[in-house]
């Protein structure tokens, strides 16, 4: 394949990754924004979503499309409930102290990971995509006879991958609508701005926190459910999404949802493109160092306005 079509292919793959990353990072960003705590177990909620999606499709059986739709609805709900319960049982009791929350969520990380290992096992398992038509894409070339359109071999995308991009877009818009237009969003924003004043105005802050923590985890689980037909479910799959979400949330500015979306698309795309053309280890290493440097020299992130 020539460079041009190859680049387009890398960008499409990058866009799929960026979609999933956007959902996962939005979850982390929401939790950080409203609750001011870092959830280190976020990657494990992602993994739990993928593993539950496998269980659900396995138990439902029947045509892949039906089983997948059930998984898409139930897996995030289950993960969200588990996360809300963890918040209620653990984080609420340590009063959301930032440092102790990190230690406690590290604990949660290992508990979820190891319980999955004990029940689900060490194997990676795929989920059948509900539909998977291969769509060939055209490419243009400026030859001697003007513009030519042809169909390079290998330049294609599946209908399922398009669906992932579309679903992420839809979820993002829905989240924006909730945050900006609904009464719930108003309560969330009030809690984010000033916890005590919100409480004084009758906002049940503790329940809001549990809800936000659950919602954040559910977003990660939704991203994971979307990704299992492309990438298999495995008990260690939470590490990369966690690190990438961290990076995205930092670059986007801690607590800014708009910045998170921009950064997720930027990083998901470049991660996809870089890993097609360069060694993934080197790319990851440079990206990690770069982000650490951003945090050192510009702690408010690239899009954040207030210092964190």
């Amino acid at each position: 394949m020539d460079f041009g079509p190859h680049l387009l292919l890398a960008m499409l793959e990058g866009l799929v990754q960026a979609s999933v990353l956007t959902l996962t990072a939005l979850g982390l960003s929401l939790v950080f924004g409203v609750m001011r705590v870092v959830n280190v177990a976020h990657g494990e909620f992602f993994m739990l979503g993928a593993v539950l999606a496998w269980w659900i499709t396995f138990l439902v059986g029947g045509p892949p499309a039906l089983a997948f739709i059930v998984a898409l609805l139930v897996a995030p709900l289950l993960v969200g409930t588990i996360a809300a319960a963890a918040d209620w049982l653990v984080l609420r009791r340590i009063d959301y102290d930032p440092e102790r929350t990190i230690v406690a969520t590290i604990g949660l990380l290992y508990i979820i990971q190891q319980l999955t290992l004990m029940s689900y096992g060490p194997d990676a398992r795929p989920v059948a995509p509900p539909f998977n038509t291969r769509l060939a894409l055209p490419w243009f070339e400026f030859g001697s006879g003007g513009v030519q359109i042809y169909w390079p071999w290998g330049l294609s995308i599946t209908s399922y991958k398009l669906f992932v991009i579309f679903a992420a877009l839809l979820t993002g818009l829905a989240l924006w609508a909730v945050m900006a237009r609904s009464r719930l969003g108003l309560i969330l924003r009030a809690t984010q701005q000033d916890r005590e004043t919100a409480q004084a105005f009758g906002v049940p802050v503790e329940r809001v926190y549990a809800l936000v923590f659950g919602l954040g985890a559910a977003l990660a689980a939704l991203g994971a459910t979307l990704v299992v037909p492309i990438q298999q479910a495995h008990y260690l799959m939470g590490g990369d999404p966690l690190l990438l979400s961290f990076i995205v949330v930092i670059i986007g500015g801690l607590g800014s949802l708009r910045g998170t979306v921009v950064a997720a698309i930027l990083i998901g795309m470049s991660d996809g493109i870089i890993s097609v053309f360069f060694s993934p280890t080197l790319a990851k290493m440079l990206a990690t160092l770069l982000v650490a440097m951003v945090l050192v020299f510009r702690p408010q992130g690239l899009f954040g306005s207030k210092p964190a």
Binding site: V90, A104, Y110, I111, L117
Partner: peptide, 16 residues
């Protein structure tokens, strides 16, 4: 064999 489970539980119980 999942000894990290013990680590996780210990961390949560300690903070609590």
């Amino acid at each position: 064999d999942a000894y990290m489970l013990v680590v996780g539980v210990a961390l949560v119980l300690l903070t609590l």
